[in-house]
Design a protein around this nucleic acid. Structure first.
Lengths: 191, 191
DNA sequence: AACTATAGGGAACGATCATTCTCAAAGCAA
DNA sequence: TTGCTTTGAGAATGATCGTTCCCTATAGTT
């Protein structure tokens, strides 16, 4: 295993543990055990637990952004692209390991203690808002639509996490259809 | 101060501390200092920190439920009652102390460790869903509307907490108006 | 006034945390 | 083989946590 692979492996394992049980609930000793590296090597790869947390969040952001963009790219027209967001959520919520948005969880757990985590959470959510805003603009919709659609997505994430059901994704999608159709002129060629 | 007043005072102070900084970040020694009671008396009033956490959440639930019901009761017709929910959120978000939904925060911090906290969070959110469902039923609306409106409210809470803005309440309200008008027949006497 | 029960105040306990240190084993150059 | 550097594995450190315990001082009763 090259140092680069070890680095990536630590981040993957830490992500799983932090996401399953919370950041504070996972100690460095346990992480060390799960990655099967000496504590010394762990601290050679990362200067602190906080650095691992940041790396985990950054990776989550990249995976989320890429995954949602993939779904958007696969959709045919602007309306379908917007709705594809909720299909992505639906698949995500159905995963056994789903336990809510890692950023919201981290923010609730440590946001008030760590300005860095709060800022990363803000950045992550703003980036999602920007994606929606661009899609709404491409669709020629009311700019107010984008934050509305974001609220549905955020609400679906917390509600799915708390209820343990994937249903909120479908509810959000239905609501999104209504909001879209009310605030976007019919797509060209579909009237 | 009677024992009952002490009891209530501890819960109020603990609520403020837990909400501001997170549950795990507040130690019993600090709580003791803030309530100005000997540790011994604290443990005479509550058997454990966990018991204080539960009491805090239960009080939050009662206050939230009463506050939102008050707004609903003050509204004229079913449509206005549904929208009153978002006005309540707007006022809440504008408070300096606002830091998101205490249940969502507690769930993110300890939900995976403590089934009791997870269950209280579920119960709290289900009760909100029931309130909306009844209002939608009274308004003769599509039953699917209630969970949609709940998603907007939940999304607004997390988005307001993360962004530090009260704007999400207004965005949620506007979206709610569209969803309501699309899924409820016009109120009698207003056509 | 003397004895008893209670309550205050905080030290002590045992556990756990992130981080650092020790030290022996192993790899490697000569 | 000998000496040197790097590594593995986990014990030590110092801090903090929730909870319990001890001791003193006070209040109440006769």
């Amino acid at each position: 295993m090259t140092p680069g692979e070890e680095h990536a492996h630590v981040i993957e394992v830490a992500d799983r543990l932090f996401y399953e049980r919370g950041i504070q609930a996972v100690g460095m000793a346990e992480l060390r055990r799960e990655v099967d590296l000496p504590l010394k090597k762990l601290y050679a790869l990362f200067p602190s637990k906080q650095a691992i947390v940041f790396a985990v969040l950054d990776r989550r952001h990249r995976i989320w952004t890429a995954g949602i963009q993939e779904r958007i790219d696969a959709a045919a027209d602007p309306r379908q692209k917007l709705l594809a967001v909720y299909d992505y959520l639906s698949d995500w919520f159905a995963e056994d390991s789903f336990r809510g948005c890692a950023f919201i969880n981290a923010f609730g757990e440590l946001g008030s203690q760590s300005p860095d985590i709060a800022e990363r959470t803000r950045t992550h959510k703003e980036s999602f808002q920007r994606v929606l805003a661009e899609l709404v603009a491409e669709a020629g919709g009311n700019p107010a639509l984008a934050p509305q659609l974001a609220l549905l997505a955020e609400g679906a994430q917390t509600t799915a996490a708390i209820s343990g059901s994937a249903e909120p994704a479908r509810q959000a999608r239905q609501a999104a259809e209504i909001l879209i159709d009310a605030q976007i002129q019919a797509a060209p060629g579909l009237a």
